Simulated assay, not measured.
Amino acid sequence: MDCDTSVTPVACTYSCPSDQFFNSGGALTSTKKVTCNTATAEWSHMSASNPLGVLPSCSDKTDPTSYHLTAKIGLAGSDSCIDGLTAALQTALESSSDEAYNCMDNNQCAISGSAKCSSDSDGKLSLEFVVKQSGGDLKTSAIIDAFNTQLKTDAAAKTFTLTVGGKRRKTRATTLTADGTVVSTAESGCAAGSGTVGTSCIKCPAGEYEKDGVCTACAVNTYSDTVGSTKCIDCADSLKTITTGSDSVSDCLVTCTVKDVANGFRSPTIGYTVSEGTTLTTFCNSNYSLEYETTNKALCKTDTQPTCYKKCVIQSVDERATLQTTTLKAGSMLSYKEELKFTCSNKDKDMFNVQCAGAGNLYDISCPSKRI
């Protein structure tokens, strides 16, 4: 990962090895930009579901085994659905002179299942159907993409027509014409263990499994440690994973929940589940502190996590008092259990002290009024 530490927050770019990718919002990509807030020790991609800020796993592309075009076209010419629409659709596509539909005529493409007709409250018809390409060149989506482009063009231009019936004596044919509305999406069909990303396929990386043609992160308390998995493995006994997408049995752990801290915050964030023993960093709000000389870093234990205490306030300072290391003044604050030692000009040989024994206490620094 390449980072620019000259900017705030620190900006980093995560990159996959050559020829590997990951799914980002339905598209294959090989890079991800993230930032790190050095003040809170948190990455921009950390969340309750990703408390450790795990970056996406990269994987290889694989060749599709098929392509699917899902389309919905608005039709005019009838105010209700009629029988025979699937056959009429098949005929219209096979008999078309447009080269983009040729795959229907040479058995490379076919309508998958039956076309579904629906009518809205205004009587507007729409026809939904799926065209599957399982033959021809499957290394690219060129055939199904051309089909999709032509279908959108014909539907938008209202030149796409279906003729239903009219073959029997004394029956009248019904002609339905596209009304200009069309929604269509092309996707790939992938082999077991690979997932669809648009018209591409990617091998499901460790930590994911293929479910209904999609690479899906393993659920909490499960893992997959091999590429191309079709199922995840349950953690043994009462062990748990911190988040989804675990890729090793070593991710099955005794866990710890980051607890709330009054008058402060933590990193990882409060409410996150992490492995027991993870280092937590606690930050206290202004006028609050941890116990004096206690580090703000501590291992996550379910029952013991650092607390923020209100600081003690020095209300007044005798002009004869001198602190050995700094200058005392009214309004100075002490951390909980912090001790201040001071001398008095009228008691040269004696050392005095004041300690913040109770959170938020108020103290006066005073010297004896008489020499002895």
Rank of each mutant, 00 (worst) to 15 (best):
K297W: 00
F160K: 07
V258G: 03
T281P: 03
G165H: 04
L323C: 10
F160N: 08
S24P: 01
E128P: 01
A146Q: 09
C215Q: 05
P17K: 13
N353F: 07
K33P: 00
T295F: 07
T175Q: 08
C308H: 07
L151W: 04
V227A: 14
R320Q: 13
K124S: 04
E276W: 05
C201W: 02
A173P: 02
R371E: 13
Y292N: 13
N287R: 13
T153H: 02
D120A: 12
Y101Q: 12
A87R: 02
A157C: 06
S112W: 01
N50E: 12
G25I: 06
V34T: 14
W43F: 12
E291S: 10
Q324N: 12
A48H: 08
L93E: 01
P205H: 11
A39Q: 06
E128I: 01
C12V: 04
C252R: 12
D350A: 15
C308E: 03
S95P: 02
T8A: 14
S15R: 15
L151S: 03
P306D: 00
V274H: 15
F147P: 03
C232T: 03
P306R: 15
V183M: 10
E210M: 14
K211Q: 10
F352R: 06
D105I: 00
D98R: 12
N361C: 07
A157W: 00
T181L: 09
T257E: 11
K61F: 12
D79V: 01
E291C: 05
E339Q: 13
T278Q: 14
F160Y: 07
E210R: 05
G74Q: 09
S47N: 00
D212S: 11
Y14G: 03
T13M: 08
D98Y: 15
T175N: 05
N23R: 11
V54C: 08
C356F: 04
S49W: 00
S335N: 13
T279G: 08
C252H: 07
K116H: 10
N37G: 09
T304K: 15
Q315L: 13
L85Y: 02
N263V: 10
D318L: 09
K341S: 05
R169Y: 09
T31S: 15
D212G: 06
K347Y: 13
N148H: 12
M1R: 06
V130K: 15
D19V: 01
T159Y: 08
D348Y: 09
N148D: 09
V197D: 02
